[in-house]
């Protein structure tokens, strides 16, 4: 299973999904109404490294994090 965490202001509990790449995650989240705005403006990390391709492979035990717009300081 892959754990998906929603960080900061995204009010959503973590998911445990049986998926093998980010493309499958995109399909699932695009069908979730409350996620639409966050998908547009959030970055994605796998095991705490930012990624830039939907083809990125996922394996059992991986952690995916969604990072909405930031403002430190």
């Amino acid at each position: 299973m892959v754990r998906v965490e929603f960080l900061g202001p995204i009010q959503k509990d973590a998911l445990e999904l049986d998926i093998s790449n980010l493309s499958e995650l995109a399909t699932i989240l695009q069908e979730t109404p409350q996620m639409k705005e966050w998908l547009e403006n959030s970055a994605v990390a796998v095991n705490d490294t930012l990624v830039s391709s939907l083809d990125y492979p996922l394996k059992d035990g991986d952690k995916v994090s969604m990072l909405p717009p930031v403002c430190g300081g």
Binding site: L22, L25, A26, L29, Q30, K36, L39, E40, N41, S42, A43, V44, L50, V51, S52, S53, L54, M66, L67, P68, P69, V70
Partner: peptide, 9 residues
């Protein structure tokens, strides 16, 4: 938005 945001959209 962090660079590369919107990937899952």
């Amino acid at each position: 938005a962090i660079k590369g945001s919107g990937l899952l959209a």
